[in-house]
């Protein structure tokens, strides 16, 4: 019998990009939406992010990158998750992601990309509606 429980989210900053305003605003906003949020800190390698996701058994990983390295870093994270048989973890992303890269990222396991100016409420709504377990 699964009880109603908070959704657990890892907000992570892969790569060297230090622009963490978006990541922190999303982390704080999702907390206000009733989620349990883990913030990874800066300069995380894909390996570290996946390791954290495993130990914390999160439902969602939110990735933020503004350095243009997303096409390299994000798929590495999703493929590592696959390797560990954790594909059921939802991976969403934000940052400086040009429109033209979104299709590629979606093909590579990123469920959704949220651009500049997305309200945190809509991110929370998306998570609730698309999460793998029943609340």
């Amino acid at each position: 019998m699964e009880k109603k429980r908070p959704i657990k989210v890892l907000v992570a900053k892969p790569g060297l990009d230090g622009h963490d305003r978006g990541a922190k605003v999303v982390a704080l906003g999702l907390r206000d939406e009733g989620m349990e949020v883990i913030y990874s800190g800066l300069r995380q390698t894909p390996e570290k992010i996946v390791q954290t996701a495993i130990q914390e058994d999160v439902d969602v990983i939110g990735l933020s990158c503004l350095s243009g390295a997303h096409n390299r870093l994000f798929p590495e994270i999703t493929s590592r998750l696959k390797e560990k048989k954790m594909e059921n973890v939802m991976v969403i992303a934000g940052g400086h992601i040009p429109e033209k890269d979104i299709a590629f990222l979606r093909e590579n396991g990123i469920s959704a990309v949220f651009g500049h100016g997305t309200p945190v409420k809509s991110i929370a709504e998306y998570i609730r509606q698309n999460i793998a377990f029943n609340l």
Binding site: R31, I38, S40, G41
Partner: peptide, 27 residues
């Protein structure tokens, strides 16, 4: 809100990849 920010982990980053360490945050 029932939400929580689990931020302590950030300061234990040196051990993220150490197989002999397992860190779990709890609200």
């Amino acid at each position: 809100t029932g939400g929580a920010l689990l931020g302590d982990r950030v300061r234990m980053q040196d051990h993220y990849l150490d197989p002999g360490v397992f860190i779990r945050s709890m609200a």
